[in-house]
Design a protein around this nucleic acid. Sequence first.
DNA 1: TATGAATGAGTCTTCATTCAT
DNA 2: CATGAATGAAGACTCATTCAT
Lengths: 198, 198, 198, 198
Amino acid sequence: MRRVDPVKHEEKRREILDAAGRCFARKGFQGATISGICSEAKISPGHLYHYFTSKEEIVEAMAAAGLASGMELFRRIIEGPDVLAAFVAEIERVKTRHIAGQALLMDMLAESGRNPTMGKILQEHSRAVIALLAGFLRTGQSRGQIDPGLDPDLAACSLLSVFDGAKTLAIRDQNIDKLKSYDVLKILIIRFLTPPTP
Amino acid sequence: MRRVDPVKHEEKRREILDAAGRCFARKGFQGATISGICSEAKISPGHLYHYFTSKEEIVEAMAAAGLASGMELFRRIIEGPDVLAAFVAEIERVKTRHIAGQALLMDMLAESGRNPTMGKILQEHSRAVIALLAGFLRTGQSRGQIDPGLDPDLAACSLLSVFDGAKTLAIRDQNIDKLKSYDVLKILIIRFLTPPTP
Amino acid sequence: MRRVDPVKHEEKRREILDAAGRCFARKGFQGATISGICSEAKISPGHLYHYFTSKEEIVEAMAAAGLASGMELFRRIIEGPDVLAAFVAEIERVKTRHIAGQALLMDMLAESGRNPTMGKILQEHSRAVIALLAGFLRTGQSRGQIDPGLDPDLAACSLLSVFDGAKTLAIRDQNIDKLKSYDVLKILIIRFLTPPTP
Amino acid sequence: MRRVDPVKHEEKRREILDAAGRCFARKGFQGATISGICSEAKISPGHLYHYFTSKEEIVEAMAAAGLASGMELFRRIIEGPDVLAAFVAEIERVKTRHIAGQALLMDMLAESGRNPTMGKILQEHSRAVIALLAGFLRTGQSRGQIDPGLDPDLAACSLLSVFDGAKTLAIRDQNIDKLKSYDVLKILIIRFLTPPTP
DNA sequence: TATGAATGAGTCTTCATTCAT
DNA sequence: CATGAATGAAGACTCATTCAT
């Protein structure tokens, strides 16, 4: 008789969050509507509120989930024996991604400037990414692939900036052949991190 | 009967755009309201429509004006005998600016990902900035301050990315002492652009 | 296949009605929600509809039950050798009751002004209470405690008015020291009912 | 050019409040809808919010206005050389009034039990009415029409109770010939207030 | 040029009720 | 008997835009 099934509940939440993610990518956080999300998720508006108490909660949950899955992807790409090559690979990935995804990050950044909750989510994620990067940098330093004179934490911040900048570049320069610009960005990373020749 | 004084008309438009800019920085493009802009500009909603035909037009005009004035500022900072030092100075400027301003750029980037008109505005501006930067790079190369091996146009793209990244960093890392991270960012620029020692 | 145990069924109905009564007292008929009642009664919304076909039915059943149990209480208080003293005791009881209970009666009165079904329920109850009061008045008259010149039925109406008025007074004058006002109300009753001195 | 006209603004507010009053009388505070009020007032929902910031504000303003105008009526009826006769006249008035008006008061009483703002409005009004009544009682006492042994303030509370009770009686006993019950209520008042014969 | 009254479509959210299990 | 997922029709409120003056 009993069938509480928290697994299914969580699954449905995830489905809704996915649908919301698609809507947000298309219209932005403010532009996307509950009824749009419901259509996308194929549920009724009333039902959505069994899983989330407000649009804000959806936005925040979606942002957190999106950032987390983004970081997971990031981690997988970055992992590898050659730290420097890994960073270059990440730039390569940005080059080939769809713009909507980047726009969503821009929305989060914009929203963070006004909404403290979103600010906190983004900040936490940023700290985690920076820590991840710093770890890799330290590994690279120990292997002699990275300039040991750089502070790993601060260099990680700079690297994150560069990755962000690669994303804004994709938006700014939509049509133009970005292939080459990205190559130069890779050079930038290499010059930044490579240990100085004695 | 009435003759429109085009100068005054233009002046009023500018005033409204300024007010709109402040509202957009506070609330975002979608979050800001016409009536909020009217309050800020101290005019009535009806009157606003003598100067602009829609909110969209205001958003676009404001974006264009904002980017233009941003570029003007940028140009002034960048101008100087030492090209490399100029770029470093721009990073310094980002460090001390208020976040709301950065958020506005993020809004434009986000919006550009969806709204083609905004995309075009941003793209045009980006091209102009890149051209400006490329010019400076060329000058620097001729003076021996910049690595002559770099393609000036592509390096300009990379530089713009880094400047954007500096802005996202300000948002991502609101409380943390960003002074030092920005110093490393300056090092990054220097290493990227400095001519190789023979 | 299942045989409904009518006793248990009735018991559950009563439980739900009790829960509903608490909700209604807190939020009013319109303000209380089915899901609130379900939480209070610790059953699921679906299950509630095995016992009642609609919210309206709950409201009406609850009103009827509430009025009936109120009258039972009333009867017990009123019963006694000294009829006059009994009425005074009822005033005393109102004085010490919680306001939420009074508000529920007000809700019924308000609802009766619009909803004929509720009107009928209240009217029937009123008639019963009036009959009860009239009986007591007659007894009192026969004992010489009540002015024999008063028509028992009409005086009962007046008495009921006074009891209602005592309840509205409790709401109107929430904080103020109502002890004394209630004493005067008792005097009012005594003066109204006491046989004239020859 | 300027035409701010706060008079018209106030007039419109009054119109809306009147419309709201009719809706509330028909459906109750919670049952009445903004769109219903708009239809009744012949304005659009958007426009209503130029005059009131929320439904709650309308409810409260309407309650305050309704009580105030009710008290004005009350004052006019009560004024007269014979204080006792005036109170009896008030009972007479209740007898002939439409039930919807009474239901509205019941709604206010019910709402006061839960909503503190409404509670305050009602309480203030009650205090004013009681003060008014107490004044009349004092006058009556000085003229020898009212028992000088009664505390005017407390007796005023009792009188207000009786007036309220007269209203609940009208609701409880809708169809029945209430003429006679009201006569007995008048007797009750007379017996309560008349000075004792020596 | 300037106002602010007025509109109505659209937004988020709630809630009584039904249904599959 | 019992659950809670699911629906969809409102409800309050917002806001870009228009219009009479």
